[in-house]
């Protein structure tokens, strides 16, 4: 494909501007985490801290036992959850992409329906705690609501259906390949960008999830890193705005960490994902497209 130098320049500049637009608040976040707490109260968030301080990180370091354990939990559930989720998602998305599949429409509807309707929190909770005994287990962070995502299935199905020509699959059949072999020998290698995309999305989903922890976990040994952070953020908000009901609300906030620490926790919650991103990006490669196979 020919592209002029001017075009390259202009798209780079546009992307650069947009990237800065995205990164700027994040810089603010990092810088706030390195600011002296009281300085934030005094002057607000600054791009460059007036008074540089690592107190927030030191505090986190002092509580590193909790933080590291939570990191361990988060990494474990992200890893296991993403793998299991991907496996099940690809296995259902591929058949759905095949027009000749019996009950295809029904199955597609069955998947889609889960995106709109759910029984709500209470029945789901009762099911997972009464029947499966998931309360305060690591499985509660992996399975309920997260493991297979209808949205990702539909996304992947669409990719399979559009980017893998039926002809390729047909010719494989003529060569005598079995379904299973077609799936992992031909379809999967052809779909690396999609797999990377959905894999990344699963990883983000698991990494950022705090809701399951909020509902199913009361034992701090199973808190994920996002649980720790969200608990602080939401508690602060709740206590401040419910002083009349709770009675003690406004005085209990004294026990909660200050701004810089909340920011520091947000930062350490994001960094590992950023580091993992290039791993997924590796598969966003051109060249492994149909053309190559066909040729």
């Amino acid at each position: 494909m020919q592209t002029s130098r001017l075009y390259q320049w202009s798209i780079n500049i546009i992307m650069l501007i947009f990237t800065i637009f995205c990164v700027f608040p994040f810089v603010l976040l990092v810088s706030a985490s390195f600011t002296d707490d009281l300085e934030i109260v005094r002057t607000g968030y600054k791009l460059i801290p007036n008074q540089f301080s690592t107190a927030a990180y030191q505090y986190l370091w002092n509580n590193s036992a909790d933080i590291f354990r939570s990191y361990g939990i988060t990494i474990f559930i992200t890893f296991v959850g993403t793998l299991a989720g991907m496996l099940m998602t690809t296995m259902v998305a591929y058949p759905l992409s095949r027009k000749e599949l019996p009950f295809r429409n029904f199955l597609a509807f069955y998947v889609f329906f889960t995106l709109l309707f759910n029984g709500g929190l209470v029945p789901t909770y009762l099911l997972y705690t009464n029947f499966f005994d998931f309360k305060n287990t690591i499985l509660a962070l992996i399975i309920p609501g997260l493991l297979v995502n209808g949205f990702f299935i539909i996304l992947m199905r669409t990719f399979f259906a559009t980017s893998i020509p039926t002809a390729v699959i047909e010719s494989a059949y003529i060569d005598g390949a079995k379904e299973w072999r077609v799936f992992y020998g031909i379809v999967l290698p052809l779909s690396l960008p999609v797999l990377a995309t959905v894999g990344l999305f699963y990883a983000i989903l698991y990494w950022n999830d705090w809701f399951n922890g909020l509902i199913y976990i009361t034992d701090k040994n199973y808190f994920s890193i996002q649980n720790l952070l969200n608990r602080i953020l939401l508690d602060l908000q709740f206590l401040q705005s419910n002083t009349q009901q709770v009675g003690k609300g406004a005085e209990l906030v004294a026990k909660l960490p200050l701004d810089a620490m909340r920011m520091a926790m947000a930062v350490i919650g994001i960094i590992p994902l950023i580091c993992a991103y290039p791993f997924f990006q590796k598969y966003f490669v051109k060249g492994l497209t149909i053309g190559a196979v066909k040729g």
Partner: peptide
Amino acid sequence: IGWAAWTQQTTLMLAG
């Protein structure tokens, strides 16, 4: 249980 999660989590605990 965290303050913000209190109502929700205890409601669930008592529902089961």
